[in-house]
Computed example of a mutant assay.
Amino acid sequence: MTTDTIDEALAGRLELIGLPRGSYAVKPHDRLRRVIAQRMTESARDIPHFPLGMEIGLDALLAARAAHNGGEGAARVSVNDLVVKAAALALIEVPEANVSYVPEGMLQHAHADVAVAVAIKGGLMTPIVREAEGKSVTAIAAELKDLADRAQRFRLQPDEYTGGTFTVSNLGMFGVTSFGSIINPPQAAILSVGAARTRPVLRDGALAEEQVMTVTLTCDHRALDGATGARWLKAFRALIEAPARLFEGAGA
């Protein structure tokens, strides 16, 4: 089939759904977009997804982060760096969530290899922080900065973005407050992180404000049941709301 024939065939199909010729331009898919489309279609089709949402208080985390970043000579960390560290520790605390389903059995992962969704030109990549549970949050911050920078320049090696045991996707910087994500196979779960927002609360009988974020854990129901996902979220929330453990070994 020639290019002209393909274009004519496409134009004919689009006319049938009410898109007249000349009302659009066709931009051919590049290799990255084809791979993303294939993997996400397979995931949505073959994996039984279910979401679990939770609101998490951020006041203690934001205060601890400000104190750390304000230290003399301190290596700065972001909220996302802390989320990655908390996700890794929660996976170790709830190992039943750190698994992958394969037809032959359940893979129990020894480490928390946390992938982080990074928007790049024309698509998305998920570079991985390997064994994140054993790394300081400052080490995670430095590694993520390097991985994200090389992802933008298409300089990652395949072993730096394939595999992983869990993914974090954060759209809070765009003002998105709540969303769900499609699972990144062969992982069994992905955490979607929304923007921080202020809500009123009662403290000691007086009206006050607190910062919260909504997270959504999307689970593979072949590997995780609702109670397991809920236990993981509970462990994750405890680490975010009492963040001292996240800064252990962080140094400057």
Rank of each mutant, 00 (worst) to 15 (best):
residue 104 E to P: 01
residue 123 G to M: 02
residue 105 G to I: 01
residue 40 M to S: 13
residue 16 L to T: 14
residue 232 W to H: 11
residue 224 L to D: 11
residue 147 L to F: 12
residue 177 T to I: 04
residue 117 A to C: 08
residue 211 Q to K: 14
residue 242 A to I: 00
residue 193 V to E: 09
residue 106 M to D: 05
residue 14 L to I: 12
residue 57 G to N: 10
residue 18 G to M: 06
residue 17 I to T: 13
residue 127 P to N: 12
residue 229 G to Q: 07
residue 214 T to F: 12
residue 196 A to Y: 03
residue 244 A to I: 01
residue 97 A to C: 15
residue 72 E to P: 04
residue 172 G to L: 01
residue 16 L to S: 13
residue 216 T to N: 15
residue 204 D to W: 00
residue 132 A to L: 08
residue 242 A to C: 08
residue 233 L to N: 03
residue 89 L to P: 00
residue 232 W to G: 06
residue 181 S to H: 07
residue 148 A to C: 02
residue 170 N to E: 07
residue 145 K to N: 07
residue 210 E to W: 04
residue 186 P to F: 04
residue 15 E to S: 15
residue 105 G to Y: 01
residue 50 F to R: 04
residue 205 G to K: 04
residue 200 P to V: 03
residue 153 R to Y: 05
residue 212 V to W: 00
residue 140 I to V: 05
residue 38 Q to E: 14
residue 139 A to E: 12
residue 178 S to I: 00
residue 138 T to I: 10
residue 65 R to H: 05
residue 31 R to Q: 03
residue 75 A to Q: 14
residue 141 A to E: 03
residue 78 S to C: 03
residue 164 G to V: 02
residue 135 K to E: 00
residue 176 V to H: 09
residue 71 G to H: 11
residue 33 R to M: 09
residue 210 E to Y: 05
residue 171 L to A: 12
residue 59 D to Y: 06
residue 51 P to Y: 10
residue 155 R to A: 15
residue 87 A to K: 03
residue 186 P to D: 06
residue 92 I to Q: 15
residue 236 F to H: 14
residue 143 E to G: 10
residue 42 E to L: 02
residue 89 L to R: 11
residue 162 T to D: 07
residue 209 E to M: 03
residue 92 I to E: 12
residue 28 P to F: 08
residue 110 A to Y: 03
residue 80 N to S: 03
residue 87 A to P: 09
residue 212 V to D: 01
residue 115 A to K: 07
residue 250 A to G: 06
residue 200 P to S: 10
residue 70 G to M: 01
residue 83 V to C: 08
residue 118 V to Y: 11
residue 102 V to E: 15
residue 60 A to R: 15
residue 205 G to F: 09
residue 247 F to C: 04
residue 138 T to M: 08
residue 91 L to N: 06
residue 1 M to T: 12
residue 187 Q to H: 08
residue 217 L to K: 07
residue 93 E to Y: 02
residue 213 M to F: 06
residue 235 A to P: 07
residue 23 S to C: 06
residue 173 M to F: 11
residue 34 R to P: 00
residue 38 Q to N: 12
residue 153 R to H: 14
residue 244 A to G: 08
residue 82 L to E: 00
residue 208 A to P: 00
residue 239 L to R: 15
residue 151 A to T: 12
residue 221 H to A: 13
residue 109 H to S: 05
residue 227 A to Y: 01
residue 49 H to E: 07
residue 129 V to C: 02
